[in-house]
């Protein structure tokens, strides 16, 4: 019963995503694309933060790597489908190289290394004019053309983004459900026990970070053709922080958390326009309150309310399996 309900909800959700942009102005469609893209980036970070418990403040720089690689190659005449994977491989390799030293040490060293790394990527993108176009950036990237369908129109591009998003989400679902993904969850719930069960926590965390970075790169490779302009400032540290807060606000460690968080961050300014400059103040306060009272984010709040209103049948402690005489 619950199983099929879940499937039904999933189908309804997909249906909503398909019809959402119909009849909307270009601006709304653009916002929806941007939401999908940031959801992908946040989903990747969720693997690092929500499952492996490490803070990364470099998701925007991985977006930069993906975006610049895609931009340079598509501008050179390569097809997006070829250019994108090269960007992803690059992100994976860089993720491993960066995570290796940082994860050698216990504590939140990854946070600082990634924070500094984000600055470095910004500097390289800005200073190496010959490659990246420097502070002027790169523009005029073509949108992918798939023979019968071109994604030049905003609506077509939305569906293209949606397809990439669904594939990325399905893969993430697979990763989290695989035995290997279950090891992640064991790691999150109890690192010491996980270690004692023979899980190499360091290698696992490193892999989670590298895969999370690849998702950042994928989001970047979609930003390139969406905005058709990239410049270093769009990938500064503040954007990494923004993505991190998306994951946290939505609910770190929950599959749908990043998508909810991205929706809040991207759509909330629209809703709270009347508050003018106070928007960020309200938002930051919301995050602090969430962290103090419900660190598992909005999804956590939701499930708490659900548990209160509609509490499941409770097991009698004495009938629990595993109880022994």
């Amino acid at each position: 019963m619950r199983f099929s309900l879940k499937h039904l909800l999933l189908l309804v959700g997909l249906g909503v995503l398909v019809v959402a942009p119909l009849g909307q102005g270009n601006y709304i469609v653009y916002m929806l694309c941007s939401w999908l893209i940031f959801s992908i980036a946040a989903m990747g970070l969720n693997l690092t933060l929500g499952y492996a418990g490490q803070i990364s403040l470099a998701q925007a720089s991985f977006m930069a790597i993906g975006a610049y690689t895609t931009a340079l190659l598509t501008l050179a005449g390569w097809h997006w489908v070829v250019a994108m994977p090269i960007g992803l491989v690059l992100c994976f390799v860089v993720g491993l190289a960066l995570g290796f030293p940082a994860l050698r040490v216990r504590g939140h060293f990854l946070a600082f290394v990634t924070l500094a790394f984000n600055t470095l990527v910004f500097l390289v993108a800005r200073n190496e004019d010959w490659l990246t176009g420097g502070t002027y950036g790169k523009f005029g990237m073509p949108r992918p053309d798939f023979g019968i369908v071109s994604t030049d129109s905003q609506l077509n591009f939305y569906y293209f983004t949606l397809i990439v998003f669904v594939i990325a989400a399905a893969l993430m679902w697979g990763i989290v459900r695989s035995p290997w993904g279950r090891a992640f969850r064991a790691l999150r719930e109890n690192p010491i026990r996980a270690e004692s069960l023979g899980i190499d926590t360091r290698r696992l965390t490193l892999l989670a970070f590298a895969i999370g970075s690849v998702y950042g790169g994928l989001a970047g490779s979609l930003v390139s053709p969406l905005v058709q302009f990239i410049e270093p400032g769009s990938f500064a540290v503040i954007h990494s922080l923004r993505i991190l807060l998306m994951v946290v606000v939505g609910g770190a460690g929950f599959f749908y958390g990043p998508m909810l968080g991205a929706a809040v961050v991207i759509l909330l300014p629209e809703v709270l326009r009347f508050t003018e400059g106070y928007y960020l103040i309200l938002y930051a306060t919301l995050v602090i309150v969430l962290m103090v009272f419900c660190p598992s984010g909005l999804i956590g709040v939701g499930s708490r309310i659900r548990d209160k209103l509609w509490s499941r049948t409770r097991d009698r402690g004495d009938l629990k399996q595993g109880a022994q005489l």
Binding site: L49, G53, I55, H108, A111, L241, L244, L245, V248, A252, G277, Y278, L280, I281, Y283, A284, T285, V287, I288, M291, V292, F293, P295
Partner: peptide, 27 residues
């Protein structure tokens, strides 16, 4: 209010606090 379990949520709360202080001064 977060003690004794601090860890990740507290770190993230301080990140949000940095935004809050910055934006408040600005506004």
């Amino acid at each position: 209010p977060m003690l004794p379990k601090t860890g990740l949520p507290l770190i993230i709360a301080t990140m949000a606090l940095s935004i809050l202080l910055k934006e408040s001064v600005k506004e």
